[in-house]
Write a protein that binds this DNA or RNA. Structure first.
Lengths: 113, 113
DNA sequence: CAGTATCCAAATAGATACTG
DNA sequence: CAGTATCTATTTGGATACTG
């Protein structure tokens, strides 16, 4: 099936691009790493962990991570409402990849750029 | 030493950011992956492997990868001159990380975005 | 507490044409 | 073959103020 030369399934190259595009966003890696280390956190809690991020940018980043299926948003109906953010299994599965990046960076990226 | 709270060495967070910033550039991962698979390649050769990249963008990307210490440029004095690009050990050390990303993407990133 | 709305600046990428 | 020069478009990130 599929008459012309178009690949029937997504290529590794495309997959790699989508993964690096996602992790290349300025705040995504540190957000994921924080949730890996701390478990579920509320919006402002997360914000305090990150340092330097604005409400708007945090809000956008969390939306993107939800859309990608890495983070779940859980609304706890209290007064005032509380919203918890935590990783999905897909998000948790990034742990070895992220640690690989940290290790690679430590061993091969000069500190003086 | 170092009186105030500034970290004496770069934190893992900063390292992670520098690594993902580098790999988050649109063409860097596929460039690295191509050089991993093919070894040394000339400018136009590399360009043919990539598909869709312009001279300018390829040229800039290669410069950035050299500056980061992942790629070496080797000028062969022929007529016409030939310039080979290949990976440094630091570049080659990315192989498992990149394969980890591909695998993670295949297993956890939905194809329908 | 958990966000939105605006407006703005900078970084990134691409098209196209030209050079030694 | 191996690039550089321009100009433009798009994407991303940030400051600030406001809302339920």
């Amino acid at each position: 099936m599929n008459g012309r030369g178009e690949p029937a399934v997504e290529s590794d190259g495309q997959r790699l691009r989508r993964a690096t595009e996602l992790l290349g966003k300025k705040w995504h890696p540190v957000l994921i790493r924080t949730l890996l280390a701390e478990g579920a956190l509320g919006f402002n809690e997360l914000k305090r962990h990150i340092d330097g991020i604005s409400d708007k940018v945090l809000s956008e980043a969390l939306e993107e991570l939800q859309d990608a299926g890495l983070v779940v948003r859980d609304v706890v109906e209290d007064k005032p409402v509380r919203v918890n953010y935590s990783l999905t299994p897909a998000g948790e599965a990034l742990e070895p990849v992220i640690e690989g990046l940290v290790t690679w960076s430590r061993e091969h990226l000069s500190e003086t750029d």
